[in-house]
Design a protein around this nucleic acid. Sequence first.
RNA 1: AGGCCCGUAGCUCAAUUGGCAGAGCAUCCGACUCCAAAUCGGAAGGUUGGGGGUUCAACUCCUCCUGGGCCUGCCA
Length: 331
Amino acid sequence: MAQRVFSGIQPTGTLHIGNYFGAIRNWASLQEDHDCIYCIVDYHAITTEIDPQVLRAASRSMALDLIACGIDPQRTILFTQSAVPEHAELAWILGCVTGYGDLARMIQFKDKSAGKKFISAGLFIYPVLQAADILLYRAAGVPVGEDQVQHLELSRRIARRFNARFGEFFPEPEPIVGKGARIMSLADPTIKMSKSAGEAHYIGVMEDERSIRGKIRSAVTDIGLEPGTTMSPGVANLFEVLDLSGELLGDQSIAAELCSEFQSGKLMYSHLKDAVFESLMQVLRPIGERRRELETSGIVEDILREGADKARVIARENITKVREMAGLVVG
RNA sequence: AGGCCCGUAGCUCAAUUGGCAGAGCAUCCGACUCCAAAUCGGAAGGUUGGGGGUUCAACUCCUCCUGGGCCUGCCA
């Protein structure tokens, strides 16, 4: 049997190209030779305040985006986290073998809670739920970005502690490091692309062309460099997008050409931006089309229901074993 | 369970004795620029947490609600 892989993404409403190149594209290719379980993590989404109607719409929308981006429900289990409440139960149990100090050390918690008026206990416990997500399926591998490495390490630690206390059950999940694409914000190339930084910082996978063109045009570059100098972060980021798009399209000649222009100091950034736009749109257009077809076909609900059914079978089996081991009532 | 403090633009905060709700940063548009940045010019942004009351007039005073912070107490 193929190695089982688990990963989750928060329902943020829409994917941006950082999500796509950094994670989802890898999710899609892992389907070739792995047994994949991908989850829209709505329990995670409520760690910070979010309107219930917005959340529900965002979860559905994320499912559409993922399928449009190549997640194949025929081969892969795709579902919404809260449809399998065993995630929450396991999180509780694992929370009891997790050190307070371990959680207090999590960088993401420190970042996300800094300056917040209300910090939920859920936000603090977030990494435990994440561990539960993975361990509930006894996944062997987890595709992660750099920023999630610390959380995965905690998951391994939690698995180890559970095993030591109750008996060997959970495999320690291994990180699967993708191509390492880390797309930066257009407006501030020193930070990772994200929606929360603001409109000008990201490009939505489903965004309309005019808007994308505008954002690429106003992307930060630099004040003009001497030939042979290393690229500024903004320019390097644009090249990254161009490279990745070219790779998917099977044509990297434009990237190579512009790169040599850069080296000789002749590159016009407006040309680079035009090229980035054209290549990127070639990647995004078919995705958008697929997404529109899916939307009208109205089969997402069925896909998610079937996915949840399949996930639940595995989850129930494992949680039953965990209950047994922990001395809890087995119903 | 009791006590104290707080809530004003996306963020940080102003607003005299109760007298026209403002600034900085962020945002958006324009100029400049190969494109951006920086700079300059302009614009938008508000049920002052919510309801009720006093008053000619309430961000300001009273009252209830809600949310947040802190202190004390109790406890499966």
